[in-house]
């Protein structure tokens, strides 16, 4: 049966490719948050892999194990990246169980989940443990874990500005500091530079295409920029929006998840623009300071619809030259 040759691409190659792309951000998180970050990442990865193995074996009773394909490890890292570095292990385990158990395996495992599993875990934790999930340690406390000192994040300052605190925006770190990763937040989201390195790697290896990340970032930049021009004292600058919170992590690693993003380039652009728009709307007008994860989550739900209506341009539809 033709074709008799294959380009030797595998699920593993793609999954481990993404994991490699995450390494710069992982290293930065170890540097920034020390022990806490190591514990949280390890706990999350181990728990995800364990639940994947246990559910496949004891509940689904499948003979082949899927833990070596890298998807559970990837979910684990991404979940950890979305958590603060002083989160207790038992909360992380609950998050991993929700991510793998409810987010992925209930739908049939790899390839069948409508929502990004790591996001399902994060949102569950955010709603269930809002206090623990929104206290972010100050950087540079190498040996600290649960006892780390916490402080308000730039996002909280931006929200405060929207709510009427006129001096809040002045306390923001500079865009350059935030770009390099000197602000506070979840483990993996602080350094935009490290995440962009990962993006460059994935584009080079052709693991993802540029459409989703670029459309998200561009939309956030434009929309936040317009709002900033309208009233600079209330709405933070677009650069501040791009480099704080989960925007970079979400745009590069969470929204581009194969399973839950649209199949066509046109659909991916619509998906990206909608995520960018929703993120800014939630950040500026919503109750939560951060909107990235909810925006991706909402658009994940729209992905089947986008797939139904966005068809690739068929050969022959191009007008004659």
């Amino acid at each position: 049966m033709s074709p008799h040759v294959h380009n030797n691409d595998t699920i593993e190659r793609n999954m481990y490719g993404v994991i490699i792309a995450l390494i710069p951000a992982l290293l930065w998180s170890f540097y920034a948050f020390g022990l806490g970050s190591v514990v949280v990442t390890l706990a999350s990865v181990c728990a995800c892999v364990f639940f994947e193995w246990a559910i496949t074996k004891f509940i689904l009773k499948r003979e082949t194990s899927t833990i070596t394909d890298g998807s559970a490890i990837l979910t684990g890292i991404l979940l950890a990246f979305n958590l603060p570095s002083n989160l207790p292990v038992w909360i992380i385990i609950i998050g991993a169980l929700v991510a793998i158990g409810i987010g992925k395996m209930t739908f049939g495992g790899l390839g069948c989940n409508p929502f990004n599993p790591a996001l399902v875990g994060r949102i569950f934790l955010l709603i269930s443990f809002p206090v623990q999930m929104t206290s972010w340690p100050v950087q540079g406390q190498w040996g600290a874990y649960l006892d780390a000192e916490t402080a308000a994040t730039p996002l909280a300052l931006m929200k405060a500005a929207v709510k009427g605190d006129a001096s809040a925006l002045d306390k923001l770190p500079s865009a350059w500091e935030m770009f390099m990763g000197a602000d506070y937040g979840c483990i993996g989201e602080v350094s935009a530079l490290a995440l962009l390195l990962g993006l460059a790697f994935m584009l080079w290896k052709k693991i993802i295409t540029w459409h989703i990340p670029v459309s998200i970032l561009a939309t956030i930049f434009v929309f936040a920029g317009v709002m900033h021009l309208i009233d600079p004292t209330v709405y933070a600058s677009p650069m501040a929006h791009l480099f704080t919170g989960g925007v970079m992590l979400g745009a590069i690693f969470m929204a581009t998840d194969y399973v839950t993003s649209p199949m066509t380039h046109k659909g991916q652009l619509i998906f990206g623009v909608a995520i960018g728009f929703l993120t800014v709307v939630i950040r500026l007008f919503g109750a939560y300071p951060e909107g990235m994860s909810f925006a991706i989550f909402i658009m994940n739900a729209f992905t089947p619809l986008i797939n139904t209506y966005c068809k690739p341009k068929r050969f022959g539809e191009v007008v004659k030259k």
């Binding site: 495992g109 194969y258 649209p262 199949m263 341009k313 539809e317």
Partner: peptide, 16 residues
Amino acid sequence: RPCIRCAKCVSACPMG
């Protein structure tokens, strides 16, 4: 293996 919906086949198809 299961389809992971990576859309590589869509990009590769010469007929769109």
